[in-house]
Design a protein around this nucleic acid. Sequence first.
DNA 1: GAATATTTGTACCATTTCGCATAAAACTCA
DNA 2: TGAGTTTTATGCGAAATGGTACAAATATTC
Lengths: 203, 203
Amino acid sequence: MKSEKKQGRPRAFDAKAVIGQAREVFWDRGFSAASLDNLSAATKLNRPSLYGAFGDKEDLYLDTLEGYREDSLDILSEALNPTLTLRENLTRIYAEALKIYLHGETAARGCFLIGTATAEAIQHDRVREVLRRSLNEFDGAIKERMELAVEQGELPDNTDAATLAKLASAVMHSLAVRARAGDTRGTLEAIARSGVDFICGRL
Amino acid sequence: MKSEKKQGRPRAFDAKAVIGQAREVFWDRGFSAASLDNLSAATKLNRPSLYGAFGDKEDLYLDTLEGYREDSLDILSEALNPTLTLRENLTRIYAEALKIYLHGETAARGCFLIGTATAEAIQHDRVREVLRRSLNEFDGAIKERMELAVEQGELPDNTDAATLAKLASAVMHSLAVRARAGDTRGTLEAIARSGVDFICGRL
DNA sequence: GAATATTTGTACCATTTCGCATAAAACTCA
DNA sequence: TGAGTTTTATGCGAAATGGTACAAATATTC
């Protein structure tokens, strides 16, 4: 399919890369405070090109959200590898999350979705829907692993997998918010550890 | 002190009330997307009056955050009444939180701080500081109650009160995000219940 | 009542905002 | 080579933005 060369002048950019650069801008500034000039500068595309390829600012933002959702779900799925213990799975999830949220130790930006999409969720229905769907998918992925854990005796028989999964997500939501609020890596790692202990039968 | 009448034309508005009306605007739209026209319309003050009384948009926003922080802390303190059981305390905290987050069953707006301040936290240091301080104060208030619970035998002796408090907060952070993402009251209440069960010795 | 002090309302300004019109550029296909 | 197609670059424009100058209005104090 790729070999079918399109007619006309070829694009001088890679759409995926551009969305990634745009994501960085939105991540730092939020949707509303990110101007098309900011985006144009970061992507090195002038506005008409941005429009032609991605539509208006909201469309582009939705693309970045969608990309983040996919990336996150991939990482989550990998961390949930069922050949490992549930404890190890959760430890990995939180570790991967903090890798993203802290972004190089200094400039902590938290979760892209929770940090920027929540603010727009009231005014922009499409944003709220992406946010909602993303949170649900994360819950769902963890829930499946929990169900397996119950089957395999890692968790008690009477465990409510769906609910426990939501609590596991809750710890991640908290890490997301706290990272953006400027909490230190150490603090966040401690929360992650205690979250794991707590969910995998504590004390 | 109030009797010391200031010279000059008296204000035709109540500052606290205006801050409350401005909060509503910021709550729905976020800081960046809220225009001075929006704020002016909602408060029924023209821009020069807003500037004279509160400074620029960021100053006003910080005032609304501060007011929310104080209100929330008051509600939290009340809910943490130590003559009740810890379980009852937590149940109340989450119930009060949902009362605020859901705001009349239909238009769920989540937590004002988490829903709007997180987005600005990277670019605006003062916003980040208010957010950080608020989260820490909430954690601290719950922690104190947890320590009492340990003393009184409601929680095991080896309980790490600070960490457990952060987990209790984590459930609230999750409610805050999910409410703004559009989750139903029923879903959120279920999470709150399981959070209580989980923290107050579960299974 | 006059002087003083503060708030209010109108109108304005400079800048930034998003978005697009237009034409040159770069490619494919015949 | 020339027609057709898509992307790029320049630059425009209308609207909205945050912020302010200035004078009228309304109070206190002397």
